[in-house]
Amino acid sequence: MLSELKIDQAVELAPILTGEVDLLPVQTRYSLRVKPKERCAFIEASNIDLPAQIGKMSVQYDRVVLCIGPDEYILICSLAEREPLARKFEELMGKYIFSATDISHRNVSFILSGEQTTNMINVGCPLDLSLENFPVGKCTRTIFESAEIILFRMGKTKFQLETWRSFAPFIVGYFEKYCLQNRGK
């Protein structure tokens, strides 16, 4: 067997983003769809906690499951979980009506934090990010300028932002401009 290939997420973060924007290492990500009437049975069989409502997320160990459509979930966890998950889905295939697609490399994730985070996100994202309207634990697919993103709130001033690989530099460019313009603020 030959040596493993180097992983390259092709995202560069300027020093000015330190402390505001962090790139997560490669995660395991699955796009999960489950026929709504089989949701409970699937949860039982898979031990994957699928939130019951769009916009809600569940956290199990280091695994996050976001419900972003009526029957659509995004599962994000560490790389180590990938093999066991893949095996699990293979086992369940045929027994339950669902779809599991590996999108680990489709997305890249950023952790956004700091007092200015909501303002920085609102440079391109039109949603109201006040704690009342976007509480901790809320998730959604939305838009940042012309790039689609998935956004979820992990704390008062901490968000995770997911986007397709090729859209990441575009979004990071906005963050860089924001941080540069608000230096020292």
Partner: peptide, 9 residues
């Protein structure tokens, strides 16, 4: 049936 875009995967 479900569809998932994997263009960038």
């Amino acid at each position: 049936v479900w569809l998932t875009s994997t263009t960038e995967q």
